[in-house]
Nucleic acid binder design. Structure first.
Lengths: 354, 354
DNA sequence: GCTTTTCTTGTAATCGTTTACATAGAGTGT
DNA sequence: ACACTCTATGTAAACGATTACAAGAAAAGC
């Protein structure tokens, strides 16, 4: 069981270091470092030699060393509940756009909907491997008995509201829901169904309350509305649809708290013989790409996903440069009216095709 | 313009280091390090004290320091052409699943379809910030006059074939195309259309050749087929559809080299009055989630995206541990038959609804 | 009891940067 | 000619881990 010699990967020659450059240029490592970090401090002559040496050697500063010395990593951890979720992809793009501009990189923390995966990323943060954290999961990750938020790095949540004093960048759920109800009411609807998100979820709460406020504002009694318990996921839309089909009391408009539910709900009731939008109007929430491609195309609240990501990243960058806490932000989410909503049949038969 | 004192972020007390732990436990830093890396070398008694001290101080090893010393980063760079593309999300999940098991993290390199973004990630690799690279873009990233592949880190491409001696983990395009044609032929189709990917693209070439081979195998003349030049993207499906609608010679089955094109093609010809699958069968390639939700649901080749990601990551891990090159791999891609394909009308009217 | 082996532990070098401090030379003002 | 500022550079100490090597103590062999 002899020990291997320490450097065994000599096959690929090791990359040039600042020492190699310094030697070749005939200067000290300090001058090389300065040439890169603050060129004004270096004479034209020396700078020229250093740059030439850098080119010759193909030198790239070693990040681990730089980060160790500078005590920062130029990396941001983005915690996503499930990377396969199409909704997050565009948000990630927004984050990336902003971060790249400021020289930061993205480390993806994919929880894959398994809380036990949180620990790994808690460690990452405590290990100083990232300078800031953007959270898209529904709670503060924990692991080894500590909360990620205790690590002392700037942190913000986006898309979700996890309560507490946590800075969050998201859409105004309440306000968006209001516009949904207003739209449906203006079409002539009077009987509503609401397909909810998971009980207790803060986004769900905001959307539901907006829905209820909307009913009240229209002079309707929330008690007359039908409620189905959902989970934001596809399956719960199917389940609710079956309940809808089995029920005698059918609202003329259903508002689902997510597009996934809206789409699966719509598809399932249509298979049950219900025509959308003739017999039933359906509205979703999120504005996923899908929504434009289903038949009929889905009326929904468009979350400005790219903008959310970008704003979230920007909030972190600001907090980083001012060493302050990130600031919360509520964004506007427009209602996109498509083909899944129309005047109800009974109330306005004459208006159809007008 | 006075200089700031060096440590200005004293607001959040700095994290515990190995020295803090050593002092508290009354041992040397070497013993602390050994307690973590190879506990067998440490006496029970010392180990106990060290572990207690670690718990007390909340110590987490600093990664930058560890990486600097160990000359590795435990990070893998994944270069994606466009992170917002739903296709890649599931692949990423597969990659993540495998990497997490081996203690590696993911750094996302999002090119956002802009080649100028490549340089940043070339630097990252040369800077030793990642131990390996997984490429999903169509070419080897370049920047500052050097190729990413010259950095000497293990590298493989997944999903795509960029030619050369590059290890690739992907689906057998040729074989998959064959099964598409076989399926359509078995339904009774005799006249075909092919909606291609971008000219010269290696995946496109494989799929096209498979298509042609299939025709020949069925005793058909490829010269009778209709070809539309596409780009894998949505718009080119729409464009091809308009050409289809304007043409007198309409094949009874169209095979598109991507789902995006298949879906937009299908939707557009349907708006033009063509019924799918009654008048026209449509097949796609990729198996994106969408494909299941369009109307009619799309028959397509299902790329095992999760498995591709996982295998790609595994190939890298293997190469890393054996300090060898990653090995290429071709995966099976099944045909998923859905509602967009049916026997052609003319040829088999009697068979319909049978 | 003396040598040899085994087990623990500590010392200090190392990884590749950045940067506070020191220094040397040139320029400036009187 | 002297004191003083500036500019350009080098020296060396961090940053926080890992680990080769040395060394002391305890156990084992004869």
């Amino acid at each position: 069981m002899r020990k291997q010699p320490e450097h065994r990967r000599q096959s690929s020659r090791r990359p040039a270091t600042i020492h190699d450059v310094a030697k070749r240029a005939g200067v000290s490592t300090a001058t090389v470092s300065r040439t890169l970090a603050s060129p004004a401090l270096v004479s034209d002559e020396a700078r020229g030699r250093v740059l030439a040496a850098i080119k010759d050697t193909g030198y790239t500063p070693n990040m681990a060393a730089r980060n160790l010395r500078a005590r920062r990593s130029m990396m941001v951890l983005v915690v996503v509940p499930n990377i396969a979720n199409a909704f997050f992809a565009e948000v990630l793009r927004g984050i990336d756009d902003e971060l790249v501009e400021h020289g930061y990189g993205i480390i993806i923390g994919n929880l894959d909907n398994r809380p036990e995966r949180e620990a790994r990323y808690v460690d990452l943060v405590f290990a100083g491997q990232v300078d800031a954290v953007l959270l898209m999961s529904g709670r503060v990750p924990t692991g080894g008995g500590r909360l990620m938020s205790e690590a002392g790095v700037p942190m913000a949540t986006i898309c979700v509201d996890i309560g507490g004093a946590f800075p969050s960048i998201m859409v105004d759920d309440h306000k968006a829901s209001l516009t949904v109800v207003e739209h449906l009411v203006s079409l002539g609807h009077r009987s509503f169904g609401y397909l909810s998100g998971p009980a207790g979820n803060r986004n769900e709460i905001g959307r539901r309350e907006g829905f209820l406020s909307g009913l009240l504002a229209a002079g309707l009694d929330p008690a007359d509305a039908t409620f189905w318990q959902g989970s934001f996921m596809i399956e719960s839309g199917i389940k609710a649809a079956h309940e809808f089909l089995a029920s005698r009391k059918r609202p003329t408009a259903v508002y689902a708290a997510s597009d996934s539910m809206a789409i699966s709900f719509m598809k399932t009731v249509m298979q049950g013989g219900v025509r959308v939008p003739e017999d039933l109007s359906v509205v979703g929430f999120d504005g996923i790409e899908f929504a434009e491609f289903v038949t009929p195309t889905l009326t929904t609240i468009q979350q400005p996903r790219h903008e959310i990501g970008r704003s979230g990243a920007r909030a972190l960058i600001e907090a980083l440069s001012q060493s302050s806490r990130p600031k919360s932000l509520k964004l506007e989410a427009p209602l996109i009216v498509r083909d899944s909503t129309a005047p109800p049949r009974i109330a306005s038969t004459r208006l159809r095709r007008a």
